[in-house]
């Protein structure tokens, strides 16, 4: 049984992010099957699912790292128009550098491990055109501070840092340019539970202070429950169900979601 809800009537602002009818196959393997997702300004959208559900592929597409076979992607921002999947490589790179931040589970994907931490953050600002050394240093430091990175370790390369600190450097890099959209791909997976709680807390605080729109992908329901306003459940490349986070966790409608929720420790 799927209950169809009404269109929004009270909230009349446009969603910041809209992905519509995205499908993608790799040979005979279907990675995404007619997936649609929206996120309103300041909202946190969670995406849960097991490995192979397509959740990370969807996030890569939101970061314009991959193009689907069919479907559209729009961001409701000044000077950003049309289907973003149609942009050329250069325009994609600029858009990602200036408007979208991303934190990967694996810090090697997001960071230069042997450069200094502040250098990693400053690089993002350089890509966006900032050239003054003093400004670069000041902005990078501010972003690291907002990510609760210890400022006496600014010059330490990520390779010498703990997993939690590496995630804070990634986060600082992601928010340095105050992006409209922050994408988080299993940002706390693999961290110790106590470190995980602190990183989640930093994310929550940043979200409340800056009202950044976030999309967070995780197989960990606890992480989604802590951060997300709404959640989408994916399986086998398709959306199984979506709803308010408390509703999906307390009253899941679909057999697969019930299994997922009840399997939680």
């Amino acid at each position: 049984m799927t209950l169809t809800l009404d269109a929004p009537r009270i909230v009349t602002t446009h969603p910041l992010l809209q992905v519509h009818h995205v499908s993608k196959s790799y040979g005979s393997v279907t990675a995404l099957r007619d997936v649609s997702a929206i996120a309103y300004p300041g909202e946190v959208l969670g995406i849960v699912g097991e490995s192979g559900s397509g959740k990370s592929t969807l996030l890569r597409m939101m970061n314009l790292g991959e193009t689907p076979d069919t479907g559209s992607y729009t961001l409701d921002l000044p000077d950003v128009e049309g289907n973003l999947f149609d942009l050329d490589r250069f325009a994609r790179r600029m858009l990602c550098a200036t408007r979208i931040g991303i934190v990967y589970q694996n810090p090697h994907l997001g960071l230069l491990m042997k450069h200094s931490s502040s250098g990693n953050v400053a690089e993002r600002l350089l890509v966006a055109g900032e050239r003054s050394f003093a400004t670069l240093r000041a902005k990078a430091t501010a972003a690291l501070e907002a990510s609760e990175f210890p400022l006496d370790r600014l010059d330490a390369p990520p390779i010498e840092l703990s997993g939690g600190m590496q995630q804070r450097v990634q986060l600082a890099k992601a928010i340095a340019l105050e992006p409209a959209l922050l994408l988080l791909d299993e940002p706390t997976t693999g961290l110790d539970v106590s470190v995980q709680a602190l990183v989640l807390d930093t994310l929550k605080r940043l979200q409340q202070e800056r009202r950044i729109t976030m999309v967070i992908v995780s197989h960990d329901l606890g992480v989604i429950r802590t951060l997300a306003d709404r959640v989408m459940v994916m399986r086998g490349g398709a959306v199984v169900e979506a709803g308010l986070v408390d509703q999906i966790f307390q009253d899941p409608q679909h057999a697969y979601t019930q299994q997922l929720v009840h399997a939680k420790l």
């Binding site: 009404d6 306003d229 709404r230 709803g243 509703q247």
Partner: peptide, 18 residues
Amino acid sequence: SDHGPIDLARAADIDVAH
């Protein structure tokens, strides 16, 4: 609601959140 009557049984998630 302050925005007029709305059926919470069917209202969009974003409206309920608001």
